[in-house]
Amino acid sequence: MKDRNEIAQALAASGYIADTELATAISMMQLLKRPLLLEGEAGVGKTEVAKALAAVHATELIRLQCYEGLDQSAALYEWNYQRQLLSIQAHRGDDADAVEDRIFSEKYLLERPLLAAIRRDRPPVLLIDEVDRADDEFEAFLLELLSDFQVSIPELGTISAITIPHVVLTSNGTRELSDALRRRCLYHYVDYPDADREARIIMARIEGAGASLSLQIARMVEGIRKEELRKVPGVAETLDWAAALVGIDVRDLHDAPETVHETMMCLLKTHEDKSRVTREVTDRLLGKVA
């Protein structure tokens, strides 16, 4: 078992600054072999956790993006019908059994993310992104897969997992997930990082962002999140903004209040929010940033 401090360090080395609780969750994931369900507002870095986890384990990241109407043939496997038809036409007159054996073989099987994830030699990280967007039926199916890690394909038989992948699920809360799925998973609520951690994230991600500027940016964003906004800026927006400020060579936010206000478009994504954060508001927020 890797210690949680080691995990936090390994995550940091791959560019993800985790809090200790998340590191605990990841160490438990390995111990208990349970999937990890991450919930939180959009843009707090849920997907990044899976990417960083793949980097830590030096393994492949297999991603399944969920959407309404996602079904088995897009998530699990599909036969390559075009090739099968072609093969039937090309070998016309063959023995029926031989044809059947040929066209229902691995060669004609299209692996989709879920099947791919259990057939790797080295356990990959399986990211099931925005699972709340998929339908209830798919969720039930997922539950079955996550407990047995085997897939049955009528024409081929049952395929058992070679390795158990590290499963990370994310949810934005557009739909309430079933209790069964929630119970199956470890739960972690990803909140917006505090100013110190966000500053460290900026430093880790944006080249040329100094410690004092990063902290200023993080404090500023922290202030903006407390305003009554329709769309609260996430970490990704903060990084955009930091990159923009570093790009136009701002060293200290107090030196260029004009630029700060103008570049705020990186953070504010609706017209309403944009008009709410006026120059006065910017100045007030800047005043609070030491």
Partner: peptide, 19 residues
């Protein structure tokens, strides 16, 4: 502290539990 954090992940299943 470690046990609390571990149990929190294991037993919570939604934000209200988490909090």
């Amino acid at each position: 502290g470690l046990l609390r954090s571990a149990f929190k992940h294991l037993f919570s299943s939604r934000r209200s539990d988490w909090e």
